[in-house]
Design a protein around this nucleic acid. Structure first.
Lengths: 119, 119
DNA sequence: ATATTAACTTGCATTATACAAGCCAATTTT
DNA sequence: AAAATTGGCTTGTATAATGCAAGTTAATAT
């Protein structure tokens, strides 16, 4: 790894699982990552997901995901300036985590289905 | 799957990721699963982990993990009755999720290390 | 008799999440 | 030209989750 990623301090411990969960361990963050991996980019697209995230939570998570380098903002129009969100490599590298969750979820929640392909 | 697992209703959506996170989406649950996968079984062992979970949170999570079928209690001594916690197949099947988190964590938190082998 | 251990529970403060409403600039509709 | 809509949020407030310290209970060890 050519260290261009911001190396954060260990919050709770030096365990890689704990470090990951310091960023991802809540009800919503990984669902936004799922949406991004599925190709969603805009605020309204995230809001349209079936889990119905609240607007303040979504804004907060996008801000955190940006400040922690999972995502970057990209202007897609001037007048008015509007941003879309793109996964960085750090974010894209979560795909195996999401894939493992999909596999587990489909096993223990038969009938569950991913909208598109994360799998 | 010989349906001996309790099929819960979809809480937030029929997405397997959302279903998984309904159970696992917080700061602590997956760390307890990590400990269980590493062979820890008892209350004091979980408390001894470097992340320093609070006792009320640990008790709450163990209760939830049991009621949702990730774990079962096993008496390891009478007088006084003491329980230890064992992963069910549903819990053991989270190993690939943890492995993926370890891989990601070791990449983006260089210097992080799992205590023993989840990896 | 006193202290220690294991597995919790309880009380209270702080932080996170949920829900509804409001804001602002620009575009679209009437 | 005025009114409504769209996109991306922010604000206020209620409820729920988390954190921290202390207490409980039954049994064993000193």
């Amino acid at each position: 790894m050519t260290n261009n990623t911001t190396r954060q301090d260990f919050e709770r411990s030096f365990c890689p699982v704990a470090c990951a969960l310091d960023n991802l361990g809540d009800k919503w963050t990984l669902l936004i990552i799922r949406d991004l991996l599925l190709g969603k980019k805009r605020y309204q697209e995230f809001l349209a997901s079936p889990e119905r995230i609240a607007t303040n939570i979504l804004a907060d998570r996008l801000k955190k995901l940006e400040s922690t380098g999972f995502v970057r903002q990209q202007i897609y129009q001037q007048k008015p300036v509007r941003y879309q969100y793109i996964l960085t490599q750090k974010g894209k590298d979560l795909r195996p985590v999401l894939q493992a969750l999909v596999t587990w979820g489909k096993t223990y929640y038969p009938g569950s289905r991913v909208l598109d392909a994360v799998e």
